[in-house]
Write a protein that binds this DNA or RNA. Structure first.
Length: 193
DNA sequence: CTTTGGATCGTCT
DNA sequence: GACGATCCAAAGG
């Protein structure tokens, strides 16, 4: 298992555009597997036309309005799961999409879960890929990432976020495409793009 | 290496 | 009835 501390919830209760770059370097762990976060995107609820919560609360996006530190998992393109960390104050639909991890532990289990990955750099290099690699699906929606022994956990092992993260526009969206709300560890081989 | 098109279904209009 | 916060295999350079 990866050693480290659970980040304080107050740091996750900030706006998603502040939490997103701060999440770079943190560790996401599930099913005995773990990886370091190297790519994220911020989504900002009502003010963000690209967010699932842009048109208000629905059954699908309800978790985004809950407290920071919960896991929001959504199903997309008819076949893929994506994992988000809920941020911001309760009642504001803020979240950070985890887009890529650098695999840390449980590599054998990841390779078994993702036979399509021909290299280890392809295990977690995409939002749906990392869910597949860690075994995260809709059954994990609402998990509190900051609770010890939770089935999915967010861990701070002391690795600081990069001083100068890469920044770009978000991937795969059709609205609010100009907002530079994607952050990544420059040069990491596990990036999605 | 890059480009292209198919897969597949829950959610909201 | 349309559209995704995507991935993959196949085909071409």
């Amino acid at each position: 298992m990866t050693k480290g501390r659970r980040p304080p919830r107050r740091l996750l209760a900030r706006p998603s555009i502040e939490v997103a770059p701060w999440l770079l370097g943190k560790v996401l762990a599930a099913g005995g597997r773990s990886g370091r976060i190297v790519e994220v995107e911020a989504y900002a609820g009502g003010d963000d036309p690209a967010s699932h919560a842009h048109r208000g609360r629905t059954a699908r996006n309800a978790l985004m309005f809950e407290r920071a530190g919960l896991l929001y998992v959504h199903f997309t393109y008819g076949m893929h799961w994506c994992a988000n960390v809920v941020t911001g104050p309760v009642g504001e639909a803020q979240a950070v999409l985890i887009r890529a991890l650098a695999p840390l532990t449980g590599l054998d289990a990841m390779r078994e879960a993702r036979p399509a990955a021909r290299r280890d750099r392809e295990l977690c290099s995409g939002p749906a890929r990392l869910c597949q690699a860690l075994g995260i699906d809709g059954a994990f929606a609402g998990v509190d990432l900051l609770v010890a022994d939770a089935p999915v956990q967010l861990i701070d092992d002391g690795t600081p976020p990069p001083v100068e993260p890469g920044m770009s526009t978000r991937v795969g969206i059709s609205r609010a495409t100009e907002r530079p709300w994607r952050w990544f560890v420059v040069g990491d081989p596990n990036l999605s793009a």
